[in-house]
């Protein structure tokens, strides 16, 4: 069975075509990485799944259902959660409010409480700082809060856009451990990363996106590919 199947997707913004026919598939319980240079269209892939960018043609099928035209709340109800680029949180809300608002669409108070204690177990620092305004959090804590907020929605598929960007190597390491742990918990994850090496290491499958097209894809051994070696492991961009 396939969790998410993107076929021949063309998408962009108001007339500007960014993605020019891409195919990506994600199986249950799989981490799929999407790497590539800045401006290649990585974020646009995630935004297309979340119906934020304009999809001009192609299909996006999730658990057998076409989701191309669904509204955000329907996607969330379906179990897709999105953590956007930049560790975005509500800085003027408390940590607890940031998490609770993640579960906005869940009506059952008990489920919300259960998810909250799950997130607090996963990220103890958020529990300690639950009552503080989120703007006081450090970069690493912000990323945990952004992840925690997405987990409050009970997702089966998590879309992560450059979660490691701007984090120290130590925090990056912790973050990738957390992400692997989430897969153990049963989630499927699509992760966009600029840290190609790390991404390939934790992913079951990696796609290289260049100029709106998939230039290369493969498993962990993709790391041995000439192109990846020469261009993407030389450094980060």
């Amino acid at each position: 069975m396939i969790m998410l199947e993107i076929t021949n997707l063309h998408a962009g913004y108001a007339g500007l075509e960014v993605l020019r026919g891409i195919d990506i598939s994600i199986s249950p319980n799989e981490i799929v990485a999407l790497i590539g240079p800045n401006g290649a269209g990585k974020s646009t892939v995630i935004k297309s799944i979340f119906n934020i960018s304009d999809v001009t043609s192609g299909s996006i099928v999730y658990k057998g259902e076409e989701i191309t035209d669904l509204h955000t709340h329907e996607l969330i109800d379906f179990g897709i959660s999105y953590v956007n680029q930049g560790r975005v949180i509500f800085s003027n809300l408390t940590v607890r409010e940031n998490l609770e608002i993640g579960a906005e669409l869940i009506r059952d108070r008990h489920v919300v409480e259960k998810n909250l204690s799950h997130v607090f177990r996963k990220f103890p620092v958020l529990k300690r700082k639950a009552g503080q305004l989120a703007y006081a959090l450090s970069g690493g804590e912000r990323q945990q809060l952004a992840l925690g907020r997405a987990l409050m929605q009970n997702p089966s598929l998590l879309l992560l856009d450059e979660p490691s960007l701007g984090l120290s190597p130590k925090l990056q390491k912790e973050l990738f451990e957390t992400i692997s742990q989430l897969r153990e918990d049963g989630l499927s994850i699509l992760i966009v990363e600029q840290n190609a090496k790390k991404a390939i290491q934790i992913a079951d499958k990696t796609y290289l996106l260049e100029d709106g097209k998939i230039a290369l894809s493969g498993g962990k051994d993709i790391i041995k590919h000439e192109k990846i070696k020469n261009v993407y492991l030389g450094g980060r961009y």
Partner: peptide, 14 residues
């Protein structure tokens, strides 16, 4: 308050 803070984020959480 969330919308006042960050409308885009408010939208992507539904």
């Amino acid at each position: 308050r969330a919308i006042a803070d960050n409308k885009e984020l408010a939208e992507i959480i539904g």
